[in-house]
C-alpha cells in the first residue's frame, strides 16, 4: 500500500484477539505495550510488517500481533527472519526471542546476521532464565544463582549479550528495560530507523522463577546513557 494512502494506525490496531498468557507481573507486558506504541509512532502497516520468533515465553509475542507473525523453531528465528527480509525487502522485520533461545541453541546465528548486516531488528527479552520450561539456568543466569538445574548455585559465568554483539560488529547495539516502557518505545523506534542489523537487549524480569524483587534490583542497577555518550553515527 502506498504510504500516502495508508490508513492512520493506532496502538490498538496492532493487537490480535489473543490475550497474553504470561504470568502476572511478567516484564514482557511492559515491553508489549511499548512495542505497540512504537508501531504506532512508526506508522507501520500490517501488510508490510513481520514479527518472527523462536520458542520461549517471549516468543509467544507474535501471537499477540495483527501483523504477519511467525512462531518458529527453537533458536532459529534469525535464519527465518533473514529469509523473510530477503524475499520481501520492503517488509519491516522483527526477530523476537529470549536469552535461552537466542544465546544458547540459537547463538551460532547471531554473528552471521550481524556480519551480513541484515536489515532486521533483533530483540531479546532477557529474563536470565528458561521460564517456559519452568526455571532452568540460561546463558544469562548470574553466577551463583540457584535454579532447578543449578542446585548449588550457577557455576557458569553470566553471558554478556551487549559485549558479544559489539564484538560481532553489529551496526546497532542497545539495551533497555521493560520497567521503563517509554524508553523501550524510543529504542525500538531508533532500532527500526537504523539501516542495518539492529540488536536490542530488553531487561525483562521473570517474577516467577527469578523473584518478585527483580524489577527493583534492576531499577537500582541501571543508568541512562546521557548525551555525552557518543554511540557512533
Amino acid at each position: 500500500m502506498n504510504q500516502s494512502t495508508a490508513p492512520k494506525m493506532s496502538a490498538r490496531d496492532y493487537k490480535s484477539d489473543l490475550k497474553p498468557i504470561w504470568c502476572p507481573g511478567c516484564g514482557n507486558f511492559g515491553f508489549l505495550n511499548a512495542f505497540y506504541k512504537a508501531f504506532e509512532a512508526l506508522q507501520l502497516q500490517l501488510e508490510n510488517t513481520a514479527v518472527c520468533s523462536g520458542i520461549g515465553c517471549s516468543s509467544r509475542l507474535p501471537g499477540y500481533m495483527k501483523t504477519y507473525a511467525f512462531n518458529g523453531v527453537h533458536g532459529r528465528v534469525l535464519p527465518f527472519a533473514t529469509g523473510v527480509k530477503m524475499s520481501r525487502p520492503e517488509t519491516t522485520v522483527f526477530a523476537i526471542g529470549g536469552d535461552g533461545d537466542g544465546f544458547s541453541i540459537g547463538a551460532g546465528h547471531i554473528g552471521h546476521a550481524a556480519r551480513k548486516n541484515i536489515n532486521i531488528t533483533y530483540i531479546v527479552l532477557d529474563n536470565n532464565i528458561y521460564g517456559l520450561t519452568k526455571g532452568q539456568a540460561s546463558p544469562t543466569t548470574p553466577l551463583g544463582v540457584k535454579t532447578k538445574t543449578t542446585f548449588d548455585g550457577n557455576m557458569g559465568m553470566q553471558f554478556n549479550p551487549v559485549r558479544m554483539l559489539i564484538a560481532y560488529k553489529a551496526s546497532f547495539v542497545a539495551r533497555t528495560f521493560s520497567g521503563d516502557p517509554k524508553h523501550v518505545q524510543q529504542i525500538i523506534i531508533d532500532a527500526v530507523n537504523h539501516n542495518g542489523f539492529s540488536f536490542v537487549e530488553v531487561l525483562s524480569p521473570c517474577v516467577t522463577f527469578r523473584g518478585k524483587d527483580q524489577f527493583k534490583l534492576i531499577r537500582d542497577k541501571v543508568r541512562y546513557l546521557d548525551g555525552k555518550h557518543n554511540a557512533g553515527k
Binding site: N117, N160, V162, K169, K221, R223, L225, A231
Partner: peptide, 30 residues
C-alpha cells in the same frame, strides 16, 4: 577499532551499572 567501539566495550563491561540506551552504532554498509 573505532574510538566509540572502545567506549562501547567499556560500557558493556561495566556489570555493576547496567547502561540503558544506544550503546554502539556504526555507519551501515547497506
Amino acid at each position: 577499532m573505532l574510538g566509540n567501539e572502545l567506549e562501547a566495550f567499556d560500557i558493556a563491561n561495566d556489570e555493576k551499572e547496567l547502561a540503558l540506551g544506544v550503546i554502539y552504532k556504526k555507519p551501515s554498509h547497506l
